[in-house]
Simulated assay, not measured.
Amino acid sequence: MTKYNMQLKPDAVAREVIHGREQPPAVRTSLEQATAHALSVPFPITGDASTFFAVADDLDGEWEWAVFRNNAPDTSESATMRALLRKVRAAREYDEQSSFDNNWLTGFDLRKKSGEWPDTSIHAFAADDGYATLSVRDRFVLCSTDNMSAGVCTATLSLTTHLDGDPLDAELEIGTVFLDPECRGMGLSYLLAEAAASSMVSMLGELHRRLVSRGLTEVCNVELTVTGECISPGGERFLETTAYQFEQQWYAFLCGASEQVMVNITEIAVLDE
């Protein structure tokens, strides 16, 4: 039977209610400590404007369509974004008159509304708030050798741990998907999904390397959600394609690893916001 101290003076009782009892500091496991440390430094942005994130070759083995980060090759970021904005405006009349299925996900965030694209940042620290999270914002541009800047995809990737023994939360949020109407029906959106998935694989690969550097022996479980605000079945298919691409690329990462991978994907979910 639990006994309660009924002799507390009213002011003492008030202090107990308002401030609560002093709690001992939480004892973190080695995995929680290593994960919090891994998320305490911004993740690097991999690749540059000359790096292929996805590519489709022609019959001669030369690239015909490819996805680059932020801007087209040999073209400035501002020029690339202006070209895409012109195509977005021109496509509006086409999209209104054609099937709504041609519109995929909302938010044509092509301009730099806040911060830089791409960008990596830390949002909280485990020591202060009981959780740790960081994110990377990416913008991918689909280009061709004769039709530069034919499409775009924006994505925000985040990793969050609440340091409570539950799996780490990973989220791949698609913000915008746009493809020039002249280039639709050719399966090219697949390349944008492939690029977004590649960025998530790189992020989790970096998490693996950081955990290894801490001498961790316990595997970090991760639940991944691929999400976006879909406005048509086409948007839903894009999210599903991105999730499928991630699964295939992560499997290739596991097969190519020379050591035990310290990140275990326990679930891949697709969520339409």
Rank of each mutant, 00 (worst) to 15 (best):
M1T: 14
T2D: 13
K3I: 15
K3Y: 12
Q7E: 15
D11S: 08
D11K: 10
V13F: 04
V17D: 11
I18A: 12
R28L: 15
T29Y: 09
T29I: 06
S40A: 08
V41M: 06
F52G: 03
A54F: 00
V55H: 00
D57W: 01
L59E: 15
E64S: 05
A66G: 09
A66I: 10
A66M: 02
T80P: 00
R82N: 08
R92H: 12
S99P: 11
F100M: 14
D101P: 09
T106C: 05
S114C: 01
E116G: 04
P118N: 06
D119S: 11
D119N: 13
F125A: 08
G130V: 04
Y131D: 05
Y131L: 10
A132F: 05
V136K: 06
R137H: 06
R137D: 08
F140L: 12
M148W: 07
G151Y: 13
T154C: 05
T154Y: 08
L157K: 09
T161K: 02
H162V: 14
G165D: 13
G165R: 02
L168E: 09
A170Q: 05
L172Q: 13
G175M: 07
F178R: 10
G187Y: 10
S199Q: 14
M200C: 05
V201L: 04
M203P: 01
E206M: 06
L207K: 01
G215W: 06
T217H: 08
L224D: 02
T227A: 11
G228H: 11
G234R: 00
E236P: 07
L239S: 06
E240R: 00
F246E: 09
Q248F: 07
V261F: 03
V261T: 10
M262W: 00
I268C: 10
I268A: 09
E273L: 08
E273T: 09
